[in-house]
């Protein structure tokens, strides 16, 4: 059973009506071609209207759609030879963070991402896509490995945050993220970061320092989730829509604020409506941008990476 979001209901109702009409026409041999065509046009128009004018909260809902492609969907679809590499060489293997080598169009990449689960069992195994310090340390180990063998890095960001637990604090969640931020600036190989779903705070940023940072159209990236923002400011989750508006957390907002480089357009209705289309677009972007970045020297890439992030902010002087 597909998940239908509240604002998609009018579309789904019309689509049901259309299939009823088609069935009716077939069984009774009545000619309703014009009616069908009119209804089809109406549906298409409604879809365009709905999805081109989403509120920020509706975009947050789409970014969390359980049918959306996750990191491993992108990785396995883009590569034929992906080899997953496990463990932080210290404590354990964090299953909320995945990574390994694989080739795209004949070029080898280090592919890293936060991974969510599709069913209850998987979600538990993946800790709902919330990495522990081991996850960030595994990611850094793999990035260093990529650097050693001179392979570009791609990070897929999709998390509601770094895990807030006792063990996470004992093992230095903050230190793990901070170290990644610092080290990623100095990586000699190209780094491309793509927000494919949710980009919540330091947990997202911990693998999101790149030469190119892009967001898919229906994703969000901010310092806090709308729910947590609402609970801090209004003492309940009820103002999440308002919080989402206030946070300006969509791809368009982030682009306007010069906090990301680009936006990848999603299929109408969201990335989950057409895996091939969205994964194809992301793949093309990776190949194109990597080739561009390869033309620069490592020193130049690092310099530009630092310069880009150094310009972020807004203040009076």
């Amino acid at each position: 059973m597909a998940t239908i979001l509240e604002f998609e209901k009018p579309i789904v109702e019309l689509e049901e009506k259309l299939s009823d009409m088609k069935a009716l026409a077939e069984n009774n041999e009545v000619d309703v071609t014009t009616e069908i065509k009119a209804l089809e046009e109406k549906i298409e128009k409604l879809k365009v209207d709905t999805f081109k004018h989403l509120t920020r909260w509706q975009i947050v809902q789409l970014s969390r759609h359980p049918d959306r492609p996750y990191a491993l969907d992108y990785i396995y679809e883009m590569t034929t030879d992906f080899i997953e590499l496990h463990g932080d060489r210290n404590v354990k293997d964090d299953k909320a963070m995945v990574g390994g080598f694989g080739s795209i169009d004949g070029m080898s990449f280090m592919l890293i991402g936060q991974q969510k689960g599709r069913n209850t069992k998987q979600r538990q195994m993946r800790n709902f896509g919330m990495p522990n310090p081991s996850g960030y340390r595994k990611a850094l180990r793999l990035m260093k490995l990529a650097e050693k063998f001179d392979k570009p890095i791609v990070c897929f960001i999709d998390t509601i945050g770094a895990y807030p637990g006792i063990e996470a604090e004992e093992r230095g969640q903050a230190e793990a993220i901070a170290r990644n931020l610092k080290e990623m600036f100095m990586l000699k190989v190209p780094v491309i970061c793509i927000i494919i779903g949710e980009g919540a705070s330091g947990g997202a940023l911990g693998i999101a320092i790149g030469d190119k940072v892009v967001m898919l159209e229906n994703t969000w990236y901010s310092v806090i989730s709308p729910e947590s923002c609402s609970s801090i400011l209004w003492r309940s989750w009820d103002q999440k829509e308002q919080a989402a508006e206030a946070l300006k957390l969509t791809a368009n907002d982030m682009k306007k604020l010069n906090l990301i480089d680009d936006i990848v357009e999603e299929p109408l209705g969201g990335a989950h409506k057409d895996f091939n289309l969205i994964i194809g677009r992301v793949k093309d972007l990776i190949v194109k941008e990597t080739k561009k970045l390869m033309k620069l020297t490592p020193e130049k890439r690092i310099e530009k990476r630092i310069e880009k992030f150094s310009k972020m902010g807004s203040f009076n002087e």
Binding site: L181, L205, V223, L247, M254, L259, I306, M312
Partner: peptide, 20 residues
């Protein structure tokens, strides 16, 4: 600082870059 949302988040990146 929540009131600067994404801009605040990127200050983490900016300061870490300088420390590098």
């Amino acid at each position: 600082r929540m009131m600067e949302a994404g801009l605040s988040l990127m200050q983490m990146a900016k300061t870490s870059a300088k420390l590098a």
